[in-house]
Design a protein around this nucleic acid. Structure first.
Ligand SMILES: [Mn+2]
Ligand SMILES: [Mn+2]
Ligand SMILES: [Zn+2]
Ligand SMILES: [Zn+2]
Lengths: 179, 179
DNA sequence: CTACAGATGCAACAGAGTTTCACCTTGCAG
DNA sequence: CTGCAAGGTGAAACTCTGTTGCATCTGTAG
């Protein structure tokens, strides 16, 4: 990597610029992390990944930036049925709504689009007199594989026990240097 | 009230009985509380209300009973967009699915039924190969009143500050005797 | 009535997110 | 450029939600 890694400006970054929000090295790292994630990340995972490009990023700043992005409607918050704990997960707000289907045994998450989402939202706006800001549909169940699998063999399951940090550090090559 | 208030057997109670689950005074109080609630309660509120009929009920038992009911699919867990904090809310699983529409300013919650829910669920089962266990749609937005109200006047808003216990104790007559 | 699986209470713990405050940086005006 | 004020940041301490270990108690089958 070059000495001054300038990091290509993310879409989130330009969205914020447009709205006159001040940009910092820390924010840039966090935005890029969220933007480029191949899956839904929670705050701790965002911190770990962002710290790799900008070592000074702090836990608190991650939470503050998540708050900023939520207020501006640029990201959505997910529970993923809290299969792995009480943390919330984040993703950039997509063009079209989609729902999240989580396997309660293996933790796999599938995204699914449907016409019914927009229709439901329209119904709510009309019949409840609400201006809808954010809509979230989450489903929990058992994926094909896990339906077949005998109860005990479920070694894949993301339990509360093995959740302890390891997964993200392992997946991405170098050790986590932030607790 | 008579000395030995026998408390009519709730539907949750008989559901559990059918499944051979052991019944205790504490559980009975918690089940009755959830069953008879006129709105969605979080764990702390369930504890406060249940303690009024059965003083020995403990916080931990509330959580354990919530877990029991979730495992048996007898209650659903809601976020209500976490407008008032990080707690989760509970309600008995209804006959027909409904969604929860929460006003992000005043905290009001509206329940709404729609054909699209069942259709969406069917689509997921077919196209994702999942066996769906629980489905949750939550919407956040601004209710009619709050859309009209000028930004500052929002005195009604359930802020993190006023959340502190008062609301439930006040609403139900006698003081909360459990922290 | 008894025995024992299973439920409870307590206290200690753990994880997620927030607040405070002294210090630092960004973006802009001069 | 330079200086400066508005706003962002890190560290530590804190709050709130939920969990666990363990000694003790109790509901229920026999
Ligand atoms: Mn949640
Ligand atoms: Mn409801
Ligand atoms: Zn699975
Ligand atoms: Zn409102």
């Amino acid at each position: 990597m070059s000495p001054h890694t300038t990091m290509t400006e993310s879409r989130l970054e330009s969205e914020l610029a447009q709205r006159g929000v001040r940009m910092t090295r820390q924010r840039r790292a966090i935005l890029a992390t969220i933007e480029s994630a191949e899956r839904h990340l929670d705050a701790a995972q965002i911190l770990r990944r962002a710290s790799r490009v900008e070592a000074s990023v702090n836990r608190v700043t991650v939470y503050r930036t998540i708050g900023l992005l939520k207020r501006h409607g640029l990201i959505d918050e997910l529970d993923l049925m809290h299969v792995t704990g009480d943390a919330h997960f984040y993703e950039r707000r997509p063009e079209h709504d989609h729902i999240h289907v989580t396997c309660l045994r293996c933790g796999q998450v599938i995204e699914f689009e449907s016409e019914h989402l927009a229709q439901l939202r329209a119904e709510v706006e009309q019949q409840c007199g609400f201006r809808v800001d954010v809509a979230r549909t989450e489903i929990g169940g058992y994926c094909g594989g896990c339906q077949a699998m005998p109860e005990a063999t479920a070694a894949t399951r993301a339990t509360r026990a093995n959740k302890k940090g390891a997964e993200d550090a392992r997946a991405c090559g170098d050790a986590a240097h932030i607790a």
